[in-house]
């Protein structure tokens, strides 16, 4: 049974359907890539799954339960984490405090709770390789580090599925490789299912088990990465752009 599934999802802004009657299905412990030209509706789809937008129609099932209409914090508590295309670290807090927030509230929004979230946060920082930077303010980090703070933060919420929105955009090749192996390690060691929007083709081709292609709010292709890039509809969607 798929861990995450969408059926007939639609979300329009004004007259434009950013996501249009879209179906998708993701197997547990898969790494699934989501590609498509700019404005295809990829981020909007993530916002629907993460609860930031409510779909105008359609259903989303996670672990067999319908979750459309839940608030973002409730979706997080259920076990779906996300990062943002434009990073949103808590700049005036330290790296550790950022991760502590994920650990502290990831499963419950209660304030007066007695458990200590710090060990979980430290684990997450260790995992993404930010232990040495733990006492720095996020404001002072470079882009690659900020992206890893977002990863650590979401890992600290102990998710079953993560939605990664272009985590590799703006990274240099070394950092890109590092994040690619991090994503694989997340799946292999933490058994997390990964759904990732990515423009960096090397990454999509390199680590995805399966790729979805969106165009004008619709899913126009899906399958193994090497099959998808040969698909005629995909090539037309990207007409004028080089995919690889």
């Amino acid at each position: 049974m798929p861990i995450l599934q969408g059926k007939g999802l639609t979300k329009a802004f004004g007259g434009v359907e950013a996501v249009s009657n879209l179906d998708f299905s993701i197997q547990e412990r898969a790494i699934v890539g989501l590609i498509g030209p700019n404005g295809a509706g990829k981020t909007t789809l993530f916002n629907l799954v993460a609860g930031a937008f409510r779909p105008q129609s359609g259903r989303i099932r996670f672990l067999g339960e319908e979750i459309q209409g839940l608030k973002p914090f409730e979706i997080c508590h259920r076990g779906i984490g996300r990062t943002f295309q434009i990073v949103k670290p808590f700049n005036t807090l330290t790296v550790l405090e950022n991760a502590v927030i994920g650990a502290r509230f990831g499963k419950s929004s209660k304030i007066f709770d007695s458990f200590d979230p710090t060990p979980i946060a430290l684990d997450a920082l260790e995992f993404v390789g930010l232990i040495k930077e733990k006492d720095l303010l996020c404001d002072n980090l470079n882009m690659g580090e900020k992206k890893r703070v977002e990863l650590a933060r979401v890992l600290a919420t102990a998710p079953k599925v993560v939605l990664l929105d272009e985590v590799m955009a703006g990274l240099n090749p070394v950092e890109t490789d590092r994040v690619m192996s991090l994503i694989q390690k997340m799946r292999d060691e933490k058994e997390i299912t990964v759904f990732m929007i990515e423009h960096v083709m090397k990454a999509v081709m390199g680590i995805s088990d399966q790729v979805f292609v969106m165009h004008h709010g619709e899913k126009i292709a899906e399958g193994l990465p090497e099959m998808v890039v040969k698909d005629q509809a995909v090539i037309e969607a990207y007409l004028g752009e080089r995919i690889i």
Binding site: A52, F84, T157
Partner: peptide, 17 residues
Amino acid sequence: VAIRESQEAADSLGINV
């Protein structure tokens, strides 16, 4: 502070804003 720095991020990390 999380809400001040980014309401969306706070919400996505499980905080009932």
